[in-house]
Write a protein that binds this DNA or RNA. Structure first.
Lengths: 342, 342
DNA sequence: TTGTAAGCGTTATCAA
DNA sequence: TTGATAACGCTTACAA
């Protein structure tokens, strides 16, 4: 059941393997009749070159790696779609790794990829540590790395992000404009840059509206969804004056809904909720969720595009190639009572 | 920036590459002191074996392929999670391909994988054609294939599915028990086995309740979401007597919600909806969606487990390894009025 | 225009 | 216990 190889083709055609190889690669120095003969037999025998043999020789694997925290999340699903699209267009394959936000796993994956297995890596980092030497080591080994969304700011390479600060400012402002005065902020992480930037947008919006920032109103993502809900409920019970929630990642927006429901709080009457989210079902929720929607598909495309440019032109990736895309605020019923039933 | 290789290690240690290789692979015939020396230097220089060189020699890539129609779908996301988990446990890597339900794409992917790039493939087939020779060709080339969910029944290999017939029977029955008499059925495909089996459950449930089957009430998935909604609305307008919708895939359940909203139909008062779905947000929808929930994560795990058994033991996969898992009916507000607000 | 041969980095066989 | 060497399947100087 062994696949056919060049030697067999060469044998049947009474040619050398070199000639057959060149014919299949459409080299200029092979005559048309020979090319035709070779190709016909190759097709007939369903010949497919062994990718690892040619990769070894050419020193390229035609594979990129993608490392993300989670896939059961509409944001990352869409990003993957964008990446796959661009990879396919460039005739590359995509290896896929989930970290489940576990730094140990991210570390071991990075090590797996440091040996020529992939020609480049796209990463959205795990949120549980601040140590990114493993990713810098990857770069040091000559594997280009592009960050997207959850980036490591200190690492000098290209990053594809969204206008997190502005979106968060706008989201917080939207709650204030709709009457909220005590706004909880649910954040993915204290250390991740997206956490910090979204936090800054929140605090600045409060300040500009003359509302005091209270540390107590900030909740960070926990290890599990159940714990997230628990933490949100605890906060809402402790501070019944909270009249708005800004969830700066998708999962926390959903956890907020569950927490409110558990406590019998009615959205948007008792409390208004806005969240970063790419959920397709946002408009079908009860009530429809006002969202900051990131251009997830485009993020994947752009990140992959930058990576392939570096791979194909064999140029290092520089920080100036970074891109910031714009998110969109979509107002729905969770912040505006009149929009609950339309 | 070239990575260190065996030759360099051997040079520094005054050993042959063969010895170094065996030391690193912990072969019994190398002395402990030598092993220690070799390993120490390897760690010091961050040596990582070239996977393609060893793969070429050993004739194994340590990679499996996964082909799915779509990833922006909670069902497939969860399956991927399960697959990645098992692959990682077996020290394998996962290459990822999306077909977007396009048969041409599935075909070209299958060809890409027919040359030793992967040691096995997990597939959920595209719904737009009935030709599966490309996947059988893969098997013919010695690449084991395991189907999951959207399987090709005629191909003799293991399949991981759910009890589609029973679930659909139960779902239809649930609508009937809650007073529905004219039940539309939204189906993914006329040709896919899951389409046929879910259809059979639907028709049998109708028959057993003395309700006549009407072909007009069956709608098949279109090329896009917009077209799905359009088709559903057209049916609802044509047949205002419809009082129940059974959507036998996730996307069609969501499209039903949108169609009903567009037409001003109130769920569950005017019309009840039940759908196959793994949406985490099902309970947060307006109204909460009654679902047939498939054990998606387990499907991924089981499919991968069967594949790895074949790869590692080097035994062919046989149809008798097929598994049928059970889905769960979760009753919520879209079929029972009293449950709309709980 | 084609063939010969070396080499990509490993591992396996055989000999020492 | 270690070393020399061939081989995995392919590409590419260099030679013819």
């Amino acid at each position: 059941m062994k696949p056919v190889n060049l030697k067999q083709l060469a044998g049947e055609l009474n040619l050398s393997v070199a000639t057959v190889s060149r014919a299949l690669n459409d080299r200029y120095d092979i005559s048309q009749p020979t090319k035709d003969r070779v190709r016909e037999l190759a097709r007939k025998l369903n010949y497919e070159p062994n990718p690892y043999a040619s990769g070894l020789r050419r020193q390229q694997s035609k594979i990129i790696g993608v490392i993300i925290p989670e896939v059961a999340n509409h944001f990352f699903s869409l990003v993957i779609n964008g990446i796959e699209e661009v990879a396919r267009a460039n005739d590359y394959h995509v290896l896929f790794y989930l970290t489940h936000d576990d730094h140990q796993r991210e570390l071991s994956v990075a090590r797996l990829l440091a040996n020529g297995r992939v020609e480049g890596v796209l990463v959205s980092v795990a949120n549980d540590k601040q140590d990114f030497s493993h990713l810098e080591a990857l770069q040091g080994r000559g594997v280009p790395v592009v960050f997207f969304d959850r980036v490591q700011e200190e690492t000098t390479t290209a990053k594809v992000t969204t206008n997190d600060y502005e979106s968060s400012y706008e989201a917080t402002r939207h709650l204030i404009d709709n009457g909220c005065r005590t706004i909880a902020h649910l954040v993915v992480s204290k250390t991740l840059s997206i956490g910090k930037r979204r936090m800054q947008g929140y605090t600045d919006a409060l300040k500009d509206s003359g509302i005091a920032y209270e540390e107590e109103l900030v909740v960070y993502a926990q290890a599990s969804k159940a714990q997230d809900i628990e933490a949100i409920q605890a906060l809402l019970l402790k501070r019944p004056d909270i009249d708005g929630i800004f969830a700066s990642v998708e999962s926390l927006a959903m956890s907020s809904y569950e927490a409110c429901r558990n406590l019998g709080l009615v959205i948007p009457t008792d409390i208004k909720v806005i969240g970063f989210s790419n959920l397709e079902t946002a408009s079908l929720l009860d009530p429809p969720l006002t969202t900051v929607t990131q251009p997830a598909y485009a993020i994947g495309q752009e990140a992959a595009r930058i990576l392939f440019q570096a791979i194909i032109k064999n140029t290092p990736i520089v920080a100036t190639q970074s891109i910031e895309l714009k998110s969109e605020l979509v107002v729905r019923g969770s912040t505006v009572a009149e929009m609950v039933k339309l």
